[in-house]
Amino acid sequence: MIQLLEVHTKKELKQFIMLPYTIHKNHKEWLPPLISDEWKIFDKTKNHSFEHCNTILYLAKKNNAIVGRIMGIINHIYNKGSNEKNVRFFGLECYDDAEVYDKLITAVEAWGKEKQMDKIIGPLGFSDKDPQGFLIEGFKEQITVMVTNHSYEYMISHTERNGYQKKLDIFQYTAKIPEKTAEIYTRIAERATRNGYKVKEFKKSNQVKPYINDVFQLINKTYKDIYGFAPLDDKEAKEFSERFLPLLKPQYIKLVLDASNTIVAFVVAMPDISEGFKKTKGRLFPFGFLHILKAFKKTNQLNLLLGCVDENIRNSGLVALLNIALLDAARSNNLTVLDSHLILEENTKMRAIIERMEHTIYKKYRIFEKSLD
């Protein structure tokens, strides 16, 4: 018999957070997130996003063992801005057990109905910055990268068996970094420079901090039409930057400023440290950070994380400026491979930029939906 438990206590939340480390213990392609980061996502005292969302967390218990988990989220800011009434399921983890999966997913469906929602979508977290989608292709290709969801293949069959259909797919590319910048990019970048645009580069992380608020304002402005994105307020932006800035190398953060020194475009990338993260088993201390430092030195791959261009000036050559600055930095550090991270199938402009290089789509993820009527 399966017992469903709503998470209330700190002990139960710890069980919720730690369950994936058991389920994926022998899953060589799975990348364990930092346990400290998981607390920052799922603990309402640490994550400001809880303040404008309804949430519920469930654990499934079978034979006195925790065997599954799921979170339900109603993001009121997103729903209001998109004129939708969606409940999201997120963090769904279980063994290959149809009874457990069904118990978890139907619990969030029922909760969503109680809250007068008319559709359930997922996997999708508080925003598109959380791991999203179940993996549908690329299960055995290679270890995943940060902030992606390398789920087991059986999650697809259990989801579809419960009446869920495709909402949208997300692509992840690997591409060869060209040995030199294409001449067309150089010409376009020169034109952008003549029009007063310039690249701002950094050597130290503390040099980035004064620009963080303006970067997130640009994100809120340009990401508004990206599925699942909800604008981040100042507290959420601060929490997000504090999670990731310590792991970033400033030479892979590039901003474009206009003649009045306003940020109009940016890109953030980082050397791939997945192998180091794998060895930490989710813990930075006492020795996990040493594995990460070693991975920084050994990798030949650069992972894209975030980027955007002010939508009012997208044809002003700013992509060329960012492309040249970022790939020059990669080449100077002997990086030869670029990982696109996650790109929505419908984001044809971003996909076109990657597809100009020698590339392969090596993983695909899917966000599902189901009517609750």
Rank of each mutant, 00 (worst) to 15 (best):
I226V: 12
Q15L: 15
E12K: 08
G288E: 11
L327Q: 08
L248I: 14
P246Y: 10
L342A: 13
Y252L: 11
T148F: 03
E12W: 01
G228Q: 04
G317W: 02
M1D: 07
T280A: 10
N213Q: 13
R331F: 08
I367E: 05
F42D: 04
T45L: 04
Y164L: 08
G81E: 14
C53S: 15
G91K: 08
L335M: 15
T174K: 13
G276I: 10
F289P: 00
E345Q: 12
S49G: 00
G112I: 06
H27T: 12
T144C: 14
H52V: 10
Y78R: 14
G317Y: 03
K140Y: 09
E236Q: 13
R283E: 11
L232G: 05
N79I: 02
K180C: 01
T144W: 00
K80M: 14
G122S: 10
V108A: 03
E236N: 10
L245H: 11
K11F: 03
V267S: 09
T336L: 03
N213H: 09
F289H: 09
I2G: 12
G163T: 07
H76N: 15
D118S: 14
N86F: 12
N26G: 02
E51A: 15
T222A: 15
K167H: 09
Y227V: 04
V267C: 07
D37Q: 13
I35E: 06
Y173H: 04
Y197F: 15
I367K: 12
E311I: 11
S260I: 02
S49M: 12
N195A: 10
V199K: 00
W39M: 02
Y185H: 15
D310V: 07
M350S: 14
Q132Y: 05
S82I: 00
E358H: 11
L257I: 04
N315C: 06
V100F: 06
F229P: 01
T181G: 01
F229K: 09
I263Y: 02
L248S: 07
N54H: 12
D97Y: 09
L4R: 03
C94T: 15
K10V: 03
V67L: 06
H8W: 00
K40V: 01
I353N: 08
L326H: 04
I292P: 09
W39N: 04
R161T: 00
E153P: 02
F202E: 07
F126M: 11
M146T: 12
H24G: 07
K28S: 15
V267K: 01
L321S: 01
W30H: 13
K14V: 01
A230Q: 02
T193A: 14
F368T: 11
I361D: 01
W111M: 08
K204C: 02
L245D: 09
L305G: 05
E369K: 13
K28H: 12
D37E: 15
N323Y: 15
Q251V: 13
C53R: 08
